Amino acid sequence: MRASGTFTVTSFVPAGLKPEPEVTTALPVGLATIVKSFEGEVTGRSTTLFTAAFDQDSGVGTYIAMESFEGALDGHEGAFNFVHSAATSGSDRANEFFTIVPSSGTGALAGISGGGGLAVDEDGTHRIWFDFDLG
């Protein structure tokens, strides 16, 4: 099955956590927590642990995010975790990875498996889709 929707970031809070001992590289590494709100066939909210090595001036970097979602996919209500990452050279997405964490589903989403993806439209609209199986 596929469920798609749009999302908005409702909170992005940088965390002060740094690796110890810290290693200085050409791109600074940061950690933040994010809250997102979803609409469409994907409805609900997520909380995210977000780590990135990123240069805000050039838009170059890579991120990895672990999200905990609660809501509904195509009317199936519950919660689950998913993880995604991508790299960018400033205006693209490359080396994308997106998967639903096995055994993380609850409610009508218990047993969920699969993957999905993210895209950002030219107008800034953030899109998400899940290609999933409920086992």
Rank of each mutant, 00 (worst) to 15 (best):
G114A: 04
E70T: 15
T47K: 09
K36L: 05
E41A: 13
D74C: 06
D131A: 04
T51D: 00
N95S: 12
A3K: 09
I34P: 02
T25I: 03
D121G: 11
A86S: 14
R93N: 04
T24W: 10
A53W: 03
V23M: 11
E41K: 14
S11G: 07
P19E: 00
A79Y: 12
E77N: 04
S85Y: 05
P21Q: 10
A119D: 05
K18V: 13
A15Y: 06
V23T: 15
T106A: 06
S91H: 11
F98G: 01
R93K: 14
V13S: 04
H76S: 09
G5Y: 00
E20I: 08
A119S: 10
K18I: 14
S46M: 06
G75I: 03
A52P: 03
L27Y: 13
F69N: 04
D131K: 13
L27M: 11
R2Q: 15
G117S: 04
S68H: 14
L118D: 12
E67G: 01
R127K: 15
G30T: 12
T10V: 10
S4Y: 06
F130Q: 04
E67K: 15
T10N: 07
F130E: 01
G5W: 00
E70L: 09
W129N: 06
I34M: 13
R2F: 05
R93P: 00
E41V: 05
F98R: 04
V9F: 08
D74T: 08
G59D: 01
I128S: 06
K36F: 02
T6D: 03
G117F: 00
T33E: 03
F98H: 08
T51L: 06
G44T: 14
A3Q: 08
F38I: 06
L134P: 00
